[in-house]
Structure formats: C-alpha cells, structure tokens
Computed example of a mutant assay.
Amino acid sequence: MAAVRRWSEGMSSDNVKGLVLALSSSLFIGASFIVKKKGLKKAGASGIRAGSGGYSYLLEPLWWVGMITMVVGEIANFAAYAFAPAILVTPLGALSIIISAALAHIILREKLHTFGILGCVLCVVGSTAIVLHAPPERQIESVTEVWDLATEPGFLFYALLVLTAVFILIFHFVPQYGQSHIMVYIGVCSLVGSISVMSVKALGIALKLTFSGMNQLVYPQTWAFTLVVVTCVVTQMNYLNKALDTFNTAVVSPIYYVMFTTLTILASVIMFKDWDRQNPTQIITEMCGFVTILSGTFLLHKTKDMVDGASLTSMSMRQLKHEEEDGFDESIPLKRQDSLRIIP
C-alpha cells in the first residue's frame, strides 16, 4: 500500500489524464470485440467469411457498431499516449481482456473455464505491477525531437526487423497456416501495432503541442507519422478481423494483448529509452509483471483446449450413436472451434 501511495502521489497531472483515458479505452475496445464478432458471424451466415477472405461484413450494420465502438476506444487510447508513456498506457489493455472474455462467455456462449478466469486475474495482476513501476513521461517540445528518436540506428534496426517479419508472415505463412495457427494473424497485428503506437504517440504529442499554442502541423514529420499510423491501422484491422472470425474471442484477445503489449513496450524502450529513467528494481518488477501476464495467457489458452476436448468427446459419442442407429458414417469435418457449437 505504501508503494501505491507513493506512486499515486508522484504521478503528474499528465500521467493521471493518460491513465483515465487508457481505462476508458479498454472498456470500449473490450466490448467492441464482442459486437464485431456478432457482426462477423451474422455476415458469414449469408456470405463469405472474413477468415476465408470475404468482406461481406462491410455490409453488416452490427459490425459497424462494433467498429465505431472500437474507434471511440482507439481515440481515447490515442489521447492517452499523448499524455503518458507507453509502459503506463499499454498494459492497461488487460481490462479489455476481462471485458471481452466475460461478454464472450455470456453473449457468444464461448465457454470460459475457471482457470480462464484465473488467467484473466493474472493478466491484471501483471499489468498492475508494470503500471505501478512505470517511468515518468519524457518531456518533448517538438515533433522533430520524436523524429530524431525514430531515426536513430537502434529503432531503425527494430523497424526493419518488424517489416521483414510482417512480409514473411503475410506472403508465406498466412496462405498456409492462417486458418489453423492463431499466432500468424495475431503476429501480423502485433508487429505492425508496435510501430503504429510509436507513430500514434508522435502524432499525439504533435497535436497536444499544437493545441497548446506551438503549431506542429507545419512540420513534414507530423504528416509522415500520420501516414504510418493510417497504413498500420488498416493492416491491423484487416488481420484482426481474420483472427476474430477464425478463432475463439476469449483466446484471441489475451494473446493479442500480450504480444502487442510486449512488442509495444520493447519499441518504446528502444525509441524513447524509457528504461534509462528507471532503476534496476523497477525494471525487474516490470519484467516479473510480464511473466505474470504470460502465465495468465497460457492458462486462457489451455482453457480453450480443455473446452474443445470436452466438446469433441461429446461430439464423437453422438456420432458413434448415430452410426450405430443408421448403419453408416456421417462425419462432419470441423475447421473452426465455433462449428462445435452448432451441434445439437
């Protein structure tokens, strides 16, 4: 409690604003996962599913409601990055895991095992440990300062690695393994997301400075960051839709959260040198927080396997009974977890 008290007393007004915006963002984004998936399911019933390359969901109003909800959350998230460091803002996405997993259990009937609930708790505990030891925001007075940070050799090397990995995933792994391996779609989203957050933060800082009287829109760097944001967000949305339409929402959300958070904080550490403003104890505590989050994600993933196993056993028994009664095999090829739920 003493640590919490010292932390809260030491928070700047900007960090408090960033914290509130990040929390509200998680609420909207967590709910949007469910609304969008409802729209994807409804659109997939009458057209080609997004997971199979279709875009019929663009004509589904429910999907657009979810999209608007997500946009509101992303706007709040965008504003949060302008006031607080990524290490403080990004881990609070754990709240969206709790919301999406709970709503998926209630609305989408995607079963969440007791260990899945424990996994959610671990994600929150790990995120809290990170937030409590987050570094103060770096003071920046011009978007050109951010550009200088982004063009340093360390971050340029990271960006090159990300682009290479994304191209390999999109052109080699997505066609072969996208429908069967959840990490393919989420890998693209997370890698691109780490770059987009750095650009979002740069753009947010530029707008904050502009509104305070120091016009940053006259700098070409501001528009360069804007272009990167638009490109990355479009790519993220495309592959996130594919992941949501193909795999269980209660599994997509936490895995995406962990990968996105890890890569974003790594990018922030490289670009903004966040750890230079922290002592070894704070850094070690943050790393322990990551381990806790990863443990929670592992539990959620194993929970999905346990549910699938039970469903498959039930399905096999019913098929066997059907074969004994009718005298022939009428097996149903299952490609998606959701297919298990249409069996009476």
Rank of each mutant, 00 (worst) to 15 (best):
L40T: 00
G296T: 13
F78Y: 09
L340D: 06
M67C: 14
A165D: 04
F211W: 11
V71M: 08
L59E: 15
V131F: 14
E325Y: 12
H301T: 15
L58S: 00
Q278P: 00
D326Q: 11
P136N: 12
H105S: 04
D274F: 03
T210P: 02
F173P: 00
A45L: 10
V197K: 04
A31F: 06
V234P: 10
K201L: 04
P91N: 12
I195T: 03
G193W: 06
G126C: 09
C232N: 10
G47Q: 02
S253I: 11
S56K: 07
G119Q: 15
D276C: 07
E330P: 03
V269H: 03
A79Q: 03
S311Y: 09
E145Q: 07
I97V: 10
A202S: 11
G53K: 13
V65A: 03
F155W: 05
R336L: 03
R5A: 10
V200C: 14
S26W: 03
S212R: 09
A104T: 00
P175V: 10
M183F: 09
H133E: 09
L108I: 04
T297Q: 05
R109K: 06
N241S: 11
S199C: 13
L112P: 03
P175A: 06
Y55G: 10
A224S: 11
G154V: 15
A45T: 05
S56N: 10
G66A: 05
A3M: 14
I68Y: 09
I170W: 12
M259K: 13
R6E: 08
Q216N: 06
I170P: 07
S180A: 11
S212C: 15
I48L: 07
E110A: 05
Y257V: 09
A76Y: 00
L58F: 03
E325H: 12
E145L: 01
T297P: 12
G39S: 00
I87V: 08
V230N: 05
I98A: 14
L163Q: 14
L27M: 04
